[in-house]
Simulated scan of single mutants.
Amino acid sequence: MLYFLPTPIGNLDDISKRCLDILNLCDIIICEDSRVTKSLINLLNTKYNLNINPSEFYSLHTHNESEFFTKFEAKKLIENTVVYVSDAGMPCISDPGVALVEFAQQNGINYEVLSGANAALLAVAASGIVQKEFTFLGFLPNTGRGRELAIQNALNLTYPVVIYESPKRVLQLVEAIAKLEPKREIFAIKEATKKFEAKFKNSAKNLVAMLKSANLKGEWCIVIDGSKNNTQNTISVADINELDIPPKQKAKLLAKLTGKSVKEIYAQLNG
């Protein structure tokens, strides 16, 4: 049986008893980074007096998917208790794991996804902005025209938008929004569930000033209020297809716009 387990995004106490029970019984762990996962297991064993001791570890992330599935035997997922974890939070949500879900589906392998910590939903609940619907965009492209278009697209959406951002780019993101729409309301949270968690909420213009005087270290989640201008034109698939940017970046933009997988779109672009 294959299990997808969410791990704490900061506070170790956020892991569920059910997750601990399955980890304690598992034979194989497939993970994003074995070093991170082994460190987590050591902490869990010490804190909860457990003996999590899988016989095998396998790394699976976006850069080694093809190699992994040519070598890994599907029968191991049937004959053993196998756990997949990303470095933090819910697998498959702006984290690796989707390819393993698809592999299980294609090979008739039973799998289960357990509930648990997720930074996006935490930020939605804490924002005071989201009433019902929202759009999750994960990480935007890092640089260039692709990033500019992604920010503009986010501002054009009528539902609130949730974005993950690194400490290196969070101020630049809010500055870019402030130039386009200085009055747009934004909620930002960093280091969620950790000792130095911090929340900010203000107009884009005022938030720039707040962040300039803040410690930006840590992972960020941003919630942007939806557009109140229903007459704005959104960015189309044709607009993105016309961009002179690398296929992988174009695939990521098209995936966010269409809901299709990045891998599927990338294959089409290079077909």
Rank of each mutant, 00 (worst) to 15 (best):
M1C: 02
P8I: 10
P8W: 05
I9S: 03
N11K: 13
S16R: 05
K17P: 00
R18P: 05
C19M: 01
C19W: 00
D21R: 14
D21W: 02
I30N: 05
V36Y: 04
K38S: 15
L43A: 13
Y48N: 12
Y48M: 09
Y48S: 08
Y48F: 15
N51Q: 13
N53D: 13
P54I: 10
F57A: 09
L60Y: 07
H61W: 02
H63W: 06
F68A: 09
F69Y: 15
T70K: 15
K71C: 06
F72L: 07
E73V: 07
L77E: 01
V82C: 10
V82M: 02
V85P: 06
S86D: 08
A88F: 07
A88C: 12
S94Y: 02
S94G: 11
D95G: 09
P96C: 12
L100Q: 04
E102H: 10
E102D: 14
Q105Y: 04
Q105G: 01
I109S: 01
S115K: 09
N118F: 02
L122M: 13
L122N: 15
V124Y: 08
V124N: 07
S127H: 04
G128P: 07
I129K: 02
I129P: 01
V130W: 03
V130T: 07
E133I: 11
F134S: 10
F134V: 06
T135C: 13
T135L: 15
L137E: 11
F139Q: 09
L140Y: 08
P141R: 01
P141N: 04
N142G: 14
R145T: 12
R147K: 14
E148C: 00
L149D: 07
A150F: 13
L157V: 12
L157A: 07
P160Q: 11
Y164N: 11
S166V: 00
S166P: 00
K168D: 11
L171T: 03
L173Q: 09
E175P: 00
I177E: 06
A178L: 04
L180T: 10
K183P: 03
R184Q: 13
I189F: 02
F196Y: 14
K199A: 15
F200S: 07
K201D: 01
A204G: 00
N206T: 03
L211W: 06
K212T: 13
K212H: 05
S213D: 14
A214M: 06
A214L: 09
L216K: 08
L216H: 03
K217V: 11
E219Y: 06
I222P: 07
T231F: 06
I235Q: 02
V237A: 03
E242H: 13
I245K: 12
K250L: 09
L254K: 08
A255M: 04
K256F: 11
K256Y: 03
L257N: 04
K260N: 14
N270C: 15
